[in-house]
């Protein structure tokens, strides 16, 4: 885990994980550790952990679709400043088709798209960006605490 800044109101920590489903429990552990430092209430903490785990799962399932094994790593960065929580994901998988996700109506969501639906319910904003070299995708989730 890399700690960039850390005090009660301002925190920025990041960690990289191998892109595979076995890493998801490590992503959750990392997230819980950071949220414990922020002293978030348990219900909010678990909602945010779910949103983060779903986003990481989407990287494994979609950005690395048809890739059985990889040595690529993804980075999760959790920052909080002035009660604004920002969670960033960086990966080197297939580029996200942003328009498809952006224009998807809630009623069109099938069980396979539930992860994104959960993220939408929990977070205030979801922004897909092109990653800066060496990254391909950069997903940014924000929530006012």
């Amino acid at each position: 885990m890399s700690i960039e800044t850390s005090d009660l109101n301002k925190i920025s920590e990041k960690k990289d994980f191998l892109v595979n489903s076995a890493s998801l429990k490590d992503v959750r552990s990392f997230s819980r550790e950071v949220f414990d430092k922020l002293k978030l209430n348990p219900d909010l903490k678990e909602e945010l952990v779910l949103a983060i785990a779903e986003a990481a799962q989407n990287i494994v399932k979609h950005a690395y679709k048809d890739v059985s094994t990889t040595t690529d790593r993804m980075v999760v960065r959790i920052s909080c400043n002035e009660k604004l929580l920002e969670i960033s994901f960086f990966d080197k998988g297939k580029p996200v088709e942003k328009e498809k996700i952006k224009h998807r109506a809630i009623d069109d969501i099938k069980p396979g798209g539930l992860g994104t639906f959960f993220i939408q319910q929990i977070m205030d904003s979801i922004v897909f960006k092109d990653g800066e070299d060496p990254w391909i995708n950069n997903l940014v989730l924000t929530k006012k605490l």
Binding site: R28, E46, E54, Q57, P111, G112, L114, G115
Partner: peptide, 11 residues
């Protein structure tokens, strides 16, 4: 803990 994978399993 359960995520969307668990919901898909139930469905």
């Amino acid at each position: 803990y359960m995520d969307s994978s668990g919901i898909s399993l139930i469905i």
